[in-house]
C-alpha cells in the first residue's frame, strides 16, 4: 500500500485520523474489547440486583400496579426485588443501564489516546495532522465506539432485564444522545489522561463530574420514556453536550501539542 501525502483540507484530515484509528482497532481491537467486556461484566452483575427469584419471573411478569399487588398480598415483595411494569422498576433499570454504559465508557474511551502514547505514534500524529483534525477524528472514533457498544449492550439489556419500554423512539433518542454526550465530553479527558503519563486511574475522577449532568438527564429521560410519561430532558442534555464539545475543541490544542 502506498503512503498517501497528508491531505490539504480539514475534513480530509479528520476523516484520515478516524480511518487510521478504525484500521488500527480492527487489527488489535483493544478499545472495543475492553469496553465490551466491561459492559458485559457490569450488565451481568447488575442483573442479579433486579432478578426475580425462581417462578416469580412468570408470575409477576403480568403485574402492572406494584402498590395494589402489595396491598393485596404483603408478601409479594419477597418474590422479586423490583417486579416488572412498576415505576420503581423503570427507574431502577434506567439507572442501571447508564451505570453499565458509564463504566464501560470509562474503561474504553481513553484507549484512543493511550494507544498513541503507548505505541509512540503520538509525535508522528502531532507532526502530520492539525490538532483540531486530531480532536475531531478521535471524537468521531469515540462516538463510533460508544454506538457500537450500545448496539451490543442494549439488546442484551432488553433480553436480560425486561425493561418494558413504552415510548421507543424517545428511549432510543436518549440512548443515542447520552452515548454521544459521553463520548463527546470525555474525549478531551482521555487525551489528558494519556498526556498525564498514561495514568488510567485518573479517568474516573476527571470524567465523572463532567459526565454527571449528562447521567442525570439521561437517567431521568430514559426512566420517563420507558414509563411513557412526559418529561423533556433531551434539550438540556443536547445543549450541555454541544457546550462541552465546543469547549473541548477550543482547549484541545493545549492538551495535545508540545510547546
Amino acid at each position: 500500500m502506498s503512503v498517501k501525502p497528508a491531505r490539504e483540507n480539514w475534513w480530509g484530515e479528520t476523516w484520515a485520523v478516524f480511518l487510521k484509528d478504525v484500521r488500527s482497532e480492527m487489527r488489535t481491537p483493544s478499545a472495543v474489547a475492553t469496553i465490551l467486556l466491561f459492559g458485559l461484566v457490569t450488565l451481568v452483575t447488575v442483573s442479579f440486583l433486579v432478578r426475580v427469584e425462581g417462578q416469580g419471573l412468570t408470575e409477576l411478569g403480568l403485574i402492572e400496579n406494584y402498590v395494589e399487588v402489595l396491598q393485596a398480598d404483603p408478601n409479594a415483595r419477597i418474590l422479586g426485588t423490583v417486579p416488572e411494569g412498576t415505576p420503581t422498576r423503570h427507574a431502577v433499570l434506567a439507572g442501571l443501564l447508564w451505570i453499565i454504559l458509564f463504566f464501560s465508557a470509562m474503561a474504553g474511551l481513553p484507549r484512543t489516546f493511550l494507544k498513541e502514547e503507548e505505541m509512540r505514534t503520538a509525535p508522528a500524529l502531532r507532526l502530520t495532522a492539525l490538532p483540531s483534525a486530531v480532536f475531531a477524528g478521535k471524537l468521531l472514533f469515540n462516538v463510533g465506539l460508544m454506538l457500537t457498544v450500545v448496539s451490543v449492550i442494549f439488546p442484551l439489556y432488553l433480553f436480560m432485564l425486561h425493561p418494558w419500554i413504552k415510548n421507543w423512539p424517545l428511549f432510543v433518542g436518549y440512548l443515542v444522545a447520552g452515548s454521544l454526550g459521553m463520548a463527546g465530553s470525555t474525549t478531551i479527558v482521555g487525551a489528558m489522561v494519556a498526556r498525564a503519563g498514561g495514568r488510567t486511574y485518573l479517568m474516573l475522577p476527571l470524567a465523572f463530574p463532567i459526565l454527571l449532568p449528562i447521567l442525570v438527564f439521561a437517567i431521568n429521560g430514559t426512566a420517563a420514556a420507558s414509563r411513557g410519561i412526559p418529561g423533556n430532558y433531551l434539550i438540556p442534555l443536547v445543549s450541555y453536550v454541544v457546550a462541552m464539545v465546543t469547549l473541548s475543541a477550543l482547549l484541545f490544542d493545549y492538551v495535545w501539542s508540545d510547546r
Binding site: 498525564a196 475522577p205 463532567i210 462541552m244 473541548s248 492538551v255
Partner: peptide, 27 residues
C-alpha cells in the same frame, strides 16, 4: 476541584502539569 488537585499531584513535569491542570480548571 478534587479531581483538579488529583491531576496536579499525578503529573511530574511542571510545564505539562501546568497546562493539563489549566485546561481542566477552565472547564
Amino acid at each position: 476541584f478534587f479531581a483538579y488537585f488529583g491531576l496536579r499531584s499525578s503529573v511530574d513535569e511542571a510545564h505539562r502539569r501546568a497546562r493539563l491542570c489549566a485546561v481542566y480548571a477552565v472547564i
